[in-house]
Simulated scan of single mutants.
Amino acid sequence: MGDRSRWLQRIGGSLFWRVCLVNAAVFAAGVAVLAVSPATVSSPVALGEFLVLLVGLAVILVANAVLLRAVLGPLDRLRSLMEDVDLLQPGQRLPEQGNGAVADVIRTFNAMLARLEAERALSTGRALAAQEGERRRVARELHDEVGQSLTAVLLGLRGVADRAPPALAEEVVMVQEAARSSLDEVRQVVRRLRPGVLDDLGLCSALTSLVNEHAWLTGADVQRRFSTSLPPLDPQTELVVYRVAQEALTNAARHASARRVLVELTETSSGDAVVLRVLDDGRGVDGSEEGAGVRGMRERALLVGATLTVGPHESGGTDVRLRIPLHPREDGS
């Protein structure tokens, strides 16, 4: 009895046997209909009899196609999802309906996607954490070693300029200005590598400094609009928001040639999320494949469970939006 049950289960679950059973059922039904019908076939076949046979064959083929589509249709949807799936856009799943081999394949594929998304998020988090650590180390070395060395050079040149004869004083001043310019560039690189103002004064102050620096470097008209009642965010989320804004501003200047940029950081009307928005008036999205910068922003967004959308704006340019969901408070307020 147990062997018979396992045999029936294997036949019911095997895709090969399911297709065979569907075809057998269709052809058996066709034979039964012909057997009980008054239709006859003479030799040679008359025109009316030939038309009846054609109609019967068409009905059998249509019924077979409909049933096979019901059995194999999920495989087509699975193939389509496998071609389009992107681990940087999680949540893509097929509905798990029915039973048998096809349903098992879909359930296995959905489980594999969930596992790959979790592993991708974990490995991305480790890589970005290592990257931020390296940024912090390089910034510290630039500040402590290169910055202090250039400061010492500036102080020495100032003493030389005071004692130099008039014929050399002008050249010493030029070298002094070059050293001061190099020191400013080093400080700018340090700020981009690790924004100290983010740790010291918070996210809004860091974004304000970023916006002002971008306007000064590019000459673009950069406006900012930050909500005054933003909820507190954890340090990792603040760093993600800052890096996404930084990359969006870089893309607006480097790829879109934008002359006007708007940076917004607001809370949704329902209070369930914080939204960062960077809107520019540049060339906009041309439909080409996303570059490394956008994919890097998506990877950072996944770390904090945020959603990133990059698309054209109705008035032209590019609209970058980062939506960070907020966890409900423990007191329910």
Rank of each mutant, 00 (worst) to 15 (best):
T228Q: 11
A220S: 12
A256S: 12
L265V: 00
A167K: 07
T250Q: 12
R260E: 11
L230W: 02
V274N: 00
L262F: 04
H214P: 03
D234F: 03
G159A: 15
E247Q: 12
R191T: 12
L198Y: 01
R158I: 07
R254E: 09
L217Y: 08
L230Y: 05
P232G: 05
N212P: 00
V173A: 13
S270A: 14
Y242W: 14
A248F: 00
A215C: 06
V175D: 09
V211T: 11
A179R: 06
G156Y: 06
E141A: 13
L168A: 13
R194C: 09
R180K: 13
T268Q: 11
S229L: 10
R254L: 11
T266R: 12
A164Y: 08
D234L: 05
L142F: 05
A169I: 04
L157M: 08
A220T: 00
A252V: 02
N212E: 14
R259C: 10
R260P: 02
R192Y: 09
G202S: 02
R225I: 02
Q188A: 15
L183E: 06
Q148S: 10
D272R: 11
L142I: 04
H214S: 13
A215K: 07
E141W: 11
R243N: 06
N251H: 14
G147C: 06
R225S: 12
G219H: 04
S209H: 13
A215G: 08
V190R: 04
E213H: 06
L265I: 01
Q176L: 09
E213W: 02
R243G: 03
S229Y: 10
A169T: 14
P195C: 06
D144F: 04
E141I: 12
S269C: 10
L203W: 01
L265F: 03
E238H: 03
V244R: 01
D272F: 07
A152Y: 11
L262A: 09
E141Q: 15
P231V: 01
R137T: 11
V153Q: 03
V138L: 15
V173Y: 11
V186F: 01
G271R: 10
S270K: 09
E247L: 13
